[in-house]
Design a protein around this nucleic acid. Structure first.
Lengths: 223, 223
DNA sequence: CCGCGAAGATTGCGGCAGCATGACGGGGAC
DNA sequence: GTCCCCGTCATGCTGCCGCAATCTTCGCGG
């Protein structure tokens, strides 16, 4: 589990990080909202601990920003501003819980658990084709709910096709999905991947077919 | 919106019902757990407000009963028993929030809104794989109901894998689950953890296998 | 309907990236 | 001190994947 801690009191932050790490929680720490925003764009956190009074502004303003950018990690506000009306304010801008300082680490842990007792973050974008379910975010493929493990390049090809299922995907698009700039290919490596992928999907009984559109690209659809 | 209020102090209950109805909330009220249980079987509530000290028992015992019968409505505990450790206790049996008496109706409303914003709490409290049961929130592992204690990093790896059992977990995801951005690793530390974890699970007879998907990540499944 | 060229399919091979594992040692906890 | 977690290195091995050679399919024009 990985948390983002936004807190400008250095000592409290260090103590908290240490305490949390004893519970097996990995904590990233920052003191400014601007940095926090950057971090949430780069990483995915299971939860966010947020102070209200911060050097570059009121912590609560951070919550709507987060939500607008699609981060749905639960936010727990940790603050000395603990009047009932302040708590209402915090919860109503989208905080998931609100805990007044000082607090016991045990209570924080309990509230964390309460808040995390919910489905894994973000909409599980999954694509279903034939008997196959593809999760492009986690790069996982299952056929009839049993996992199918594919070599990396074949997996990338399949995901690229699945994202545009029933539509043609340009050959160049597929190449871009599998290779970066440095990796030049000067042979029919892509064709080879397609071929091996077809065989694997057939063996697994995936119920899909990869069609070729001559001179253009490929297309994935149920068969 | 329809609430179930379980509270034996008649005056408080009446006052609350009145206040809630001003917010357009329909409240069913009962004073006993036995009746409450019946009501939840017959109706579907959006949320449940629960007192701890009730004529026929400790209110908290109600929560596991609810969950076992498939009711996933959020529960807010309202009680005079408001010591930090009592709050921990409440949250850990499955309450979604915990509010000490006396409280402002406005704060109750705010916490209600916060709790209702969250998707239904379907998250598994425990994950079973092979002969092993994993509690990701408390970070505990048992094999055939005897506890297994693992070193911290190996535990984190295992939990991350268990949360997506039978599905691939990206190498980068595992690294993020175990290390924060300050702790960089420049070697095969993760591989080492996996290797040691495998050995430990084998020795313990966990009945699981950690499978590698070359170039992608790892996958936990029963064997 | 046939022939031809180009695009695609398939398969074997070899190099090497990526993984598994054991050993070692520093360092933190008790 | 003593234990053991955990990061690092070295070594061996597996199998992915780029390449190329060969065969098949497709589309077009006559």
């Amino acid at each position: 589990m990985r948390l983002l801690l936004i807190e400008d009191e250095r000592e409290l932050a260090d103590a908290l990080s240490a305490a949390l790490s004893k519970h097996g929680i990995v904590t990233d720490h920052t003191t400014h909202l601007a940095d926090a925003f950057e971090l949430t764009r780069q990483n995915t956190y299971d939860a966010i601990l947020l102070d209200r009074r911060l050097p570059d502004g009121e912590g609560l303003t951070f919550i709507p920003m987060l939500r607008r950018t699609g981060t749905d990690a639960p936010v727990i506000v940790l603050t000395a501003r603990n009047e009932p009306l302040e708590r209402v304010e915090g919860l109503d801008v989208g905080a998931d819980d609100y805990l007044g300082k000082p607090f016991l680490v045990d209570e924080l842990m309990a509230r964390l658990r309460a808040v995390l007792r919910r489905p894994p973050s973000l909409a599980e974008l999954q694509i279903t084709v034939g008997r196959m379910v593809i999760d492009p975010l986690h790069l996982s493929v299952t056929v009839a709910s049993t996992p199918l493990d594919l070599p990396r390049r074949e997996l990338l090809v399949l995901v690229a096709l699945a994202k545009r299922k029933d539509k043609t995907v340009l050959r160049s698009t597929l190449e871009a999905a599998v290779y970066n700039y440095e990796e030049e290919i000067q042979s029919n490596a892509l064709d080879a991947h397609i071929s091996r992928l077809r065989k694997r999907l057939l063996d697994a009984g995936a119920g899909v077919a990869i069609h070729n559109i001559r001179g253009v690209g490929y297309l994935l659809r149920e068969e």
